[in-house]
Every structure is written in structure tokens, then in C-alpha cells.
């Protein structure tokens, strides 16, 4: 694999940023009254967001879901706007209408985030159709979990995207759990990627904790899409290191399973590789970490100091 140094550094950077972002929320969401609603984190899954988004250009679109922080940060979303939205503040990227579950950032081409499981797929089909229709040289990436593949929308969307050879990459982030259900408790299909065969599209299995591998697969899928060869189903095998949400005690996730996957953490995996191959040195790694830390701290400060929206702002933004 011949991945440009800059891409490798970029992936490491967005993973570190995303992890610091999640880690700060682990603490913050436990403080009474600080953050409303649920807290759904992507700890351990960063390589999927970072690897896929590193393969994209600015004009490419991502459609993401309830577990979106790592996707959005990797696509270049402003951490302050995200954090303020998670705090439900006026300065948040969605003016407090969304909170954490449907963070939408059209500025980086993440224009339709949804927390309805399985809903990202048909929307991605439509977004990719528009790209094909206008002959835009861009693709749409659709992120969804393994659980989402059990919704009817998954099957309808894959069939249509394949039929019309739309420029879409379906990225199934298989973190081994859907809510409290372990993968094999919700489907008998051994690999989600196998389902691609039913719609006659390539189904690819990728180590979802290996950012360069994710990058490479996404790059190839993107090229196929741009060449008019249609969609790809890309299954990234990873692990949900934390509960479904932060209130979930994870009583159904074996401790040693969690530990084993923590050892496979995608961040040291890439940083060790980059240090070994001389692409970065350990001082640079430390610098990345402290820079990420200060960006996240700044985002938290911004969110905390920002005002809530005025009540009547609730009435705005329903219609154009």
C-alpha cells in the first residue's frame, strides 16, 4: 500500500482529535444538567470515520447517523460548532434544534444526519442520484451500523443503488452490537458484506480498526463509483468499546471482549506504525495529542460559555 504520508498523518490526526472529543464527553455528560439527552460515542471506531473521510474530497457527501462524531470530525466539521450543539446551545451547528443525535454540517457536506436507524441508506441513494443526474464528479458515503442492515430500508436502498449504478459507498460500521444485541443475535449472515451479492454489487470486508486499510478500500470504492461502476458495500469490522450510550452499563458485553478490543485500538496501531516507518516521530505524536487536547478544551469552553437559544427561536427553521 502506497499511501501518501500526508494522508497517513491526517488520519492519525483526525482519530486523535475524535478520541479526545469523545473522552471529554464521557466526563461532561455525567455532570448533572450539563448536557441534555443521550450521549452516544464512537470510542474505538475512529478508524472508520478517519479512513473513509481521508479517501474523500471536499465535494463528496457523507450521510451519517446517531453515532456521528468521528465521521463529522474526520470530514472537517468545526469541533466548536459540534460541541456547542451537543450542549444544545445557540451557537451549535444546528442552533440547539438537534443536540447530539442528528448533528448536521452542510458546510462540510454532511447535510442530512438522522437518528432513525436505517434511514441514512435511502437518503444516500437520493443524494448519489443527484450526483449522477448532474454529472458531478463526486460520491456519497452512507454510514450505518450493523443493526441498521436489518431494516427494510437497507435492502430497498441497496437494490436501487445497484440497479441505477449510483455513485454511493455504503459503509457498514459493524461494531458487533446493535443496542444490547450482539451481532449473531440479530442476523445469521456471517459477514454483512455478503448481503451485497444479493444486489450484485461488490461487498468488501475491511478491518475497521486499521485506518489505512479502510482508506484504501474507500478509495477504490470511490473510484469505481466515479467510473460509473456503481455502489459498493463496505463492511468495516470494529467494536463498540463503550455502551450503546453512556447510561448503558454494558452488562451484556463480556469484560474480556472489551479489553481485547481495547488492545486493538486503532490509534496506537496507526501511530506505532507511523513512528516505526519514520513518518512521524514521538515528539510529533505528542504534539498532535496536546493540540487535539487544546482544541477540544477550547470547544468545551466555547460550548459552556455560549448562551442557550431564546425560547421563541423554537419557532424558526420549520420552513424555508
Amino acid at each position: 500500500m502506497n499511501i501518501p504520508r500526508k494522508k497517513q498523518q491526517e488520519m492519525l490526526w483526525t482519530m486523535i482529535l475524535s478520541r479526545k472529543f469523545s473522552d471529554s464527553l464521557v466526563e461532561l455528560c455525567r455532570i448533572e444538567g450539563k448536557i441534555p439527552g443521550m450521549m452516544i460515542l464512537s470510542t474505538g471506531q475512529e478508524a472508520v470515520g478517519s479512513g473513509v473521510c481521508a479517501a474523500l474530497k471536499q465535494d463528496d457527501v457523507i450521510i451519517t447517523n446517531h453515532r456521528s462524531h468521528h465521521h463529522l470530525l474526520a470530514k472537517g466539521a468545526d469541533p466548536k460548532g459540534l460541541m456547542a450543539e451537543i450542549f444544545c446551545k445557540k451557537t451549535g451547528c444546528n442552533k440547539g434544534k438537534s443536540g447530539t443525535l442528528h448533528l448536521t454540517v452542510p458546510e462540510v457536506n454532511a447535510p442530512c444526519t438522522t437518528t432513525v436507524v436505517g434511514a441514512t441508506l435511502p437518503i444516500a441513494v437520493g443524494r448519489a442520484f443527484a450526483q449522477q443526474y448532474t454529472q458531478e464528479q463526486a460520491v456519497t458515503v452512507c454510514f450505518f451500523g450493523d443493526g441498521a442492515a436489518d431494516e427494510g430500508s437497507f435492502h430497498e436502498a441497496l437494490n436501487l443503488a445497484a440497479l441505477w449504478q449510483l455513485p454511493v459507498i455504503f459503509v457498514c460500521e459493524n461494531n458487533l452490537y446493535a443496542g444490547a444485541q450482539r451481532y449473531e443475535e440479530h442476523t445469521r449472515v456471517k459477514d454483512m458484506a455478503e448481503r451485497a451479492r444479493a444486489y450484485d454489487m461488490p461487498g468488501i470486508i475491511v478491518d475497521g480498526n486499521d485506518a489505512p486499510a479502510v482508506y484504501q478500500a474507500a478509495l477504490e470504492a470511490r473510484q469505481r463509483a466515479l467510473d460509473g461502476q456503481g455502489p459498493t458495500l463496505m463492511e468495516c469490522k470494529t467494536y463498540r468499546c463503550r455502551g450503546h450510550g453512556e447510561q448503558d452499563p454494558q452488562h451484556y458485553q463480556p469484560r474480556d471482549e472489551i479489553r481485547a478490543w481495547q488492545e486493538k485500538c486503532p490509534i496506537p496501531r496507526l501511530s506505532n506504525m507511523l513512528i516505526a516507518s519514520g513518518i512521524i516521530n514521538s515528539a510529533e505524536l505528542q504534539e498532535m495529542e496536546s493540540m487535539a487536547e487544546s482544541i477540544v478544551q477550547e470547544a468545551v469552553r466555547f460550548a459552556e460559555e455560549s448562551p442557550y437559544p431564546e425560547p421563541r427561536e423554537a419557532l424558526e427553521d420549520v420552513y424555508v
Binding site: P36, C88, K97, S98, L101, Y308, R312, A314, L315, V318
Partner: peptide, 16 residues
């Protein structure tokens, strides 16, 4: 409730 989707932010949700 007013004719809006339910917003997430506490003062907005309270308004709803």
C-alpha cells in the same frame, strides 16, 4: 404544542 418538531435544547423543548 406549537406546530413545530420537538427541539432538543432545554429552553426550546420547554417552550414546546
Amino acid at each position: 404544542g406549537p406546530d413545530i418538531p420537538v427541539p432538543a435544547s432545554p429552553p426550546l423543548e420547554k417552550f414546546y
